[in-house]
Design a protein around this nucleic acid. Structure first.
Lengths: 146, 146
DNA sequence: TCATACTGTAGGGACTACCTACAATTGTGC
DNA sequence: GCACAATTGTAGGTAGTCCCTACAGTATGA
């Protein structure tokens, strides 16, 4: 029984984005169940992969996470052999993170799932509209248009 | 030190919407701190206000929440005198919820805050673009265009 | 009457966001 | 060289969300 939502809430982009986000994450997590991968893991893997060997604090900065929360994610990822975590020989406070081959494979897997889910999630929109939505979201986010 | 995000993540509307949503909610919560109102409370108040006297299960259905999670929200709202919760005389399994005057005032307060925050959140977009974004979000959400 | 379904409530588990504290390490001013 | 501050990773706590199960009270239909 999926009743209609209050119209007074549908006025707010924040509300709409929250619900769409939640729906997308749920679908991705469902597709990823069993692989031992969470969506956050993917974010971290992508970040380490894109910006080369990185200290944990730098990953947290780039993703807008707290460094203390990153620890558990990295524990999982390291145990699964998806990242290497080694002391930085130049600054022994830091751990240097590097992506492994398994990590790269995980990224590719989530990329595929995410593309499929995005298509579902925005299936009510034409391809042009999807493109427009993405462009506006990027701009609102403060990123230069791709 | 706000570093740039991984480009590979900015490809995903789900990721962008999640971050924008989080940012919006944080600003609203901040503005609402001290008033004893959470954003979820507002959702519930709006729902009860819009669809008249409602049973708890109906509110949960309309908002996509679990009825068990609604209980704590309603405990707060009732204690604050923002909703009345009474046994339904026609079906004594149900509690009938009605909005009080204080509840209506709370809705008006959050409406104001939310409008201001939405303006901030989308300040990188022109008014036309904000309108387009909202229309596309509504459509993606499966709602008929207003 | 008996079985079935619905409603509100209690409680738990897993996850996220945010915060503090702390030990190890590095850098700075003297 | 040395006291002091800052940084980094880690542990832990709190609050909130989402999802699930169990249960007692109530209604409904065979």
């Amino acid at each position: 029984m999926t009743d209609r939502r209050p119209r007074a809430l549908l006025r707010w982009p924040t509300y709409l984005m929250g619900n769409l986000h939640r729906s997308g994450v749920a679908r991705i997590d469902e597709a990823l169940a069993g692989s031992g991968l969470a969506l956050r893991d993917y974010y971290v893997l992508v970040c380490v992969g894109e910006f080369g060997p990185l200290a944990q604090q730098r990953v947290a900065d780039r993703l807008g996470l707290d460094r203390s929360d990153l620890v558990k994610v990295l524990d999982r990822l390291e145990a699964a052999g998806r990242v290497r975590r080694e002391r930085d020989t130049e600054d022994r406070r830091r751990h240097v993170l590097t992506l492994t081959e398994a990590g790269r494979a995980a990224v590719a897997q989530v990329d595929e799932v995410s593309a499929a889910v995005t298509g579902e999630l925005l299936s009510e929109l034409s391809l042009d509209e999807q493109e427009t939505l993405h462009r506006l979201l990027l701009k609102a986010f403060g990123e230069p248009p791709a």
